[in-house]
Write a protein that binds this DNA or RNA. Sequence first.
DNA 1: CGCCACTCCTTTTTT
DNA 2: AGGAGTGGCG
Length: 650
Amino acid sequence: MASLNAEQRLAVEYAGPARHLLVLAGAGTGKTTTLVQRVAHLVRGGTKPERILLLTFSRRAAKEMRGRLAAALGPVTDRLTIGTFHSFCWEVISRIPKTFGVQAATVIDRDDATSLFTLARSERVEKGERDFPKAAQIADWHSYARNCLLPLDAYLEKFTELPADWVRRVVAIAEAYTAKKRERHYIDYDDMLELLVRGLEKSTALRTQMQALYQHILVDEMQDTNPVQWRLLDLLREPAQLYCVGDDAQSIYAFRGADFRNVHAFGERVPGAAVLKLTENYRSTQEILDVSNWLLARSPLNYEKELRAARGRGVRPRLIDFASKFDEAAWLANDLRVRHEAGAGWREHMILVRTAWSAKGIEAALVEADIPYTFIGGTSFLQAAHVKDVLALLRASFNRLDELAWVRYLTLWPKVGDGSAGKVVRALAAQPDTSMFDVLQKTLKNREEIAEGLHLATALAANPQAAVGAVCGHLEPLLASRYDRWEARKSDLRLLAQLAEKYSSVREFVETFTLDPVSNSEAARSSEDDTVTLITVHSAKGTEAPVCYVAQAQAGMYPHTRSLGDLDREEEERRILYVALTRAQNELILTRAGDEVVNIFQFGSTARALGEGYFLEELPADIADVTHMGFGGTRNALDSLRELDDELGW
DNA sequence: CGCCACTCCTTTTTT
DNA sequence: AGGAGTGGCG
């Protein structure tokens, strides 16, 4: 067993008197270790593994915990229940499908939900009404309200400036969305939590039985738990004991309804709870923590946090300015290469970015420098258009009511638009006893190739890898003419087939990957590969690396311009940067580009707000080395000759 | 009914 | 720069 310090041991072996426990664990203080050792401690103490539930925030965290537990406990690990809140709820619901009315349901992701909202909106909003909130915005509000257990109208009245009649119309659109969802047997992410919570509230029998399942419920990242999730824990926690681990300073999911103040109020929210603290940081050197502490101390909020490094002192963090983001990206690639040539492994390096989108430039530089990397976060691989096209046919093959999938598949074909696709969708719903194949044949005359696609998917339903392969082959001519860079995209589809291999049905494959979207490069590489990690800060919570680059740390990014003007949101941005800084073990390097590279998307607010409240503005020189590099780096040496042009002029 | 050309807006973060 | 939504034409 890993050696524990006194605080950790107290937390791991805690045996009362309080029934429930919150462990406030600062960054790098051994949160995961404590959780893993707690489970191991319980199992070794005689608790049946079946009676332990471990809820994590992300799929990646669940996987990590499972791996570490397997190392500590061996095969009994398989008897533990470990998962995200969402996957746990969905597993419960899937076991009692008739009660929850989800026998033939298809799980939809955010994109599909937004498409459904677009349909609902278009029925209720004139084309000319350009100011009326967009589908994506309405979907956000709707999701947020549900995660907070608030009725949509109450939420809109309280938190938006919408006029009363628009509130009513938005609510009507949300109701239409819900109706469409039900009609099409769709389940969205929020349904998973909401259905189970409602079921537990409604049915004493279900509640009693579920409460009897677990003796111990352990929760990771408690500070990011939102009201529905709290409600679920409230419903399950008697007689089970709650064991929660979290850090208020790392709460970065307010946009999903999390409120870090809830961990402060833990004692009141959970009667009979005690709070322990872990304060010794084992991850980083004191220099790295000095910068992190400095950032947090400047907050108007009081986090009462001052991280101390158990490891002692090391290298001073650096802040490097570049003339352009190209210089910055090129320097990053070069620095990585130099370190690699000096003997460091690629995997010892992590580049953290605020937004997935802005990582593109760095990605390009890494590709050009031939540096192996894994990108984690942001738009997943499954959201690429060509991948969705293939998945649409697979989805349609097992849910005849899946309108979004049918329309997507059918309109891929020439001469098939929304009109005929709609006809097919209606016919499929109206004739539930006719096979889908026959409906297609009858509705789309002389279009055998369209029905043939369905045939391939259905015939190979039990062999996902073959089904994906066959469907890709069938659609290839269509997709190749539709998208540019086809060769690159085609490799995504090969990857898709590869991913499908370990599943026993097409349905299981599609469902798992909707719940657990995999980013492109993440899917392509196994965890054993030696690669640099390029990652969004949100995805990086819980991870660490010896050398961390916090890239694009310029004004406008921390805090992000979109959050300006709202104090709570700006403070959340501070915590995001704090999370980024505290990932580093040995070396922390902040890089940023000067703003002479004009952003093409010059939104009004960007220009005005640049620099206001910028967190790194006053970074003291005694805690970080600030250097300027690469001025004119993108300029060709010959460019200096240009100045001669005016002078010479013969 | 489908296709194409045009305009407008976008990108904060994720289960 | 590119994707989504819109409107007019074949």
